[in-house]
Design a protein around this nucleic acid. Structure first.
Length: 488
RNA sequence: GCGGGUGUAGCUCAGCUGGUAGAGCGAUAGCCUUCCAAGCUAUAGGUCGCGAGUUCGAACCUCGUCGCCCGCUCCA
């Protein structure tokens, strides 16, 4: 057995499409950029990943509960979170160098020059004018101002600028069926805010005591400037987030605890240690005082699959300010009221799916000499595989098919089982390998005599003979979610 | 958004200096078969990404457009 050439992202994309895991969205209309659909096998794998995450959070931890908040939220939510102001950037391109700049940063740079040149009044005047134009959303005015100030591109040295365009990372839509009565709202760019606005509801109705966590799985939407690398960066994506509310001052302790715990999770679902790494953030987001990514080694390099952030009390404090509703918790242990600090774990469901899929994709050269050939299979953890077992009659005749069908029927209520009698058995084994089915049950002539079958293991291709009555327990044990949860 | 590359069957690709489409694999049905994509027979599947233009004639040339890939820009 030797290792075949390195897997490219193209191999992954082709395999995902061919075997029903991921399809380009609206493909018959040439697709829609950065949007993908999960197919019949992909949805099973993704659901399994979501289920194991959900259980790892809400079942393994007494102090973590889940919610499912809406995608639509009150517009002030995004004011409080900083998304409205912080991610509404005016961009401008230089036509000669093709470099893109943030228009506000160009003007701020110019103001800085004035200040250094001993003209602070002029600097302030410029900043005021910029603020006025941006506030009025007068983008043409911003461009005029840049040209009037003689600002040039550092690369090309020219002032050959495009129009100023607004890049809002949030998608907006209208609520209200009648246009004149409608108001603009956003599709949430992160699920976290649904948790923050429900902090007190959950705390009070669940009699939760700090420290405690709220978990949520849900879709989020971002109008990314560029979207690439398959399902790694999509405009519509799914997050699995848990916000952990802690006593101020204890956040770093919890931050480190979750940093460890989350890495353990990724290893438990089968991602190898050598393909995972931490990446500490140098530049912290506006709300965080510590941040680390867990990165997975994709075919295109180490990239973030999960972020762990110490968010301080930024979000709750801002919600308290805008909503005028106290977001405080009374800690009876220390007899104090405070706004809890938050440690966030946020993993992309689609990224975890892609990491799992890339990791499972295995190409091996098997056999010797003339019999040598390439074998492709998905080495998925049995608990994650879309199909747990396939029941295959060796041949279709002599009652083997009927026998196999009744075995498949008897297993269906325990785990996802398929029956296949099409073509030669070798081909059927391969078909199951390609979608990662861990166990194939073959019904042969001996089965007709003594009710035993063979279980063929996907990774080793080895077979063992067991009695039909043992199948449910034996395979059921291996494919149970518990096999992952117990090692987290 | 810019630059470069690219688009032919489900997948991988061929298709000459323009003459109205092919292969392998896969799929489906049947035959055959006592265990790893076996064999045989048959079948289905493509307005060559889309739209214009040039031409007697365009998968091929020109322009536009859309998607994808690589790089840059952005990324809470």
């Amino acid at each position: 057995m030797s290792q075949a050439p390195a897997t490219s992202l193209q191999d992954i994309i082709s395999h995902a499409k061919e075997y029903g895991f991921v399809f380009p969205s609206s493909e018959i209309y040439d697709g829609l950029q950065a949007v993908y659909d999960y197919g019949q096998n992909g949805v099973e794998l993704k659901n399994n990943l979501k289920a194991v995450w959900w259980k790892a959070m809400t079942q393994l931890n007494d102090n973590i509960v889940g919610i499912d908040a809406s995608i639509f939220m009150h517009p002030l939510t995004w004011k409080a979170s900083g998304h409205v102001d912080g991610f509404n950037d005016p961009m401008i391109d230089n036509k000669d160098s093709k470099k893109r700049y943030r228009a506000d940063q160009l003007l701020e740079g110019k103001a800085e020059e004035y200040r250094e040149a001993g003209q602070p009044e002029k600097a302030q005047e410029l900043l005021n004018e910029m603020g006025r134009l941006l506030g009025a959303e007068d983008l043409a005015g911003v461009r005029d101002l840049i040209i009037a100030e003689g600002i040039k591109c550092q690369v090309s040295g020219t002032a050959n600028w495009t129009d100023v365009r607004q890049f809002n990372l949030m998608f907006s839509t209208q609520v209200g069926s009648v246009a004149e009565d409608s108001s603009q709202i956003y599709l949430r760019p992160e699920t976290a805010q649904g948790i923050f606005v429900n902090f007190l509801n959950v705390q009070k109705s669940g009699r939760m005591k700090v420290p405690f966590g709220i978990a949520q799985i849900g879709k989020a939407f971002r109008n990314e400037i560029v979207a690439r690398q398959f399902t790694f960066r999509m405009r519509e994506f799914e997050q699995m987030e848990m916000q952990f509310f802690v006593r101020p001052g204890s956040e770093m302790e919890w931050y480190n605890t979750w940093k460890e715990a989350r890495m353990k999770f990724h290893k438990a679902i089968g991602l190898p240690a050598e393909s995972l790494q931490y990446h500490d953030h140098e530049k912290l987001a506006h709300y965080a005082n510590a941040a680390v990514d867990i990165e997975y080694k994709f075919p295109f390099g180490f990239r973030e699959i999960e972020g762990i952030h110490s968010r301080t009390d930024f979000d709750l404090r801002n919600h308290q300010e805008l909503s005028k509703k106290k977001q405080q918790y009374f800690d009876s242990e220390i007899n104090q009221n405070y706004i809890p600090y938050v440690v966030e774990t946020s993993v992309g469901a689609d990224r975890l799916f892609l990491a799992t899929f890339c990791n499972a994709y295995t190409r091996e050269t098997v056999g010797e000499g003339e019999g040598q050939k390439e074998r492709v299979y998905l080495k998925l953890h049995p608990a994650l595989a879309p199909v747990k077992a396939a029941v295959l009659p060796l041949v279709k005749k002599d009652g083997l098919a009927e026998k196999a069908q009744s075995i498949a029927q008897s297993l269906k209520s325990s785990f996802r089982t398929v029956y296949d009698d099409n073509a030669a058995i070798g081909k059927r084994y391969t078909r199951q390998d390609l979608i990662g089915t861990p166990y194939c049950i073959a019904v042969d002539y001996q089965t007709m005599e003594d009710d035993t079958v063979t279980i063929r293991h996907r990774d080793s291709m080895e077979q063992e003979r067991v009695h039909i009555s043992e199948l449910k327990d034996k395979i059921g044990y291996e494919v149970a979610m518990e096999r992952i949860l117990e090692v987290i």
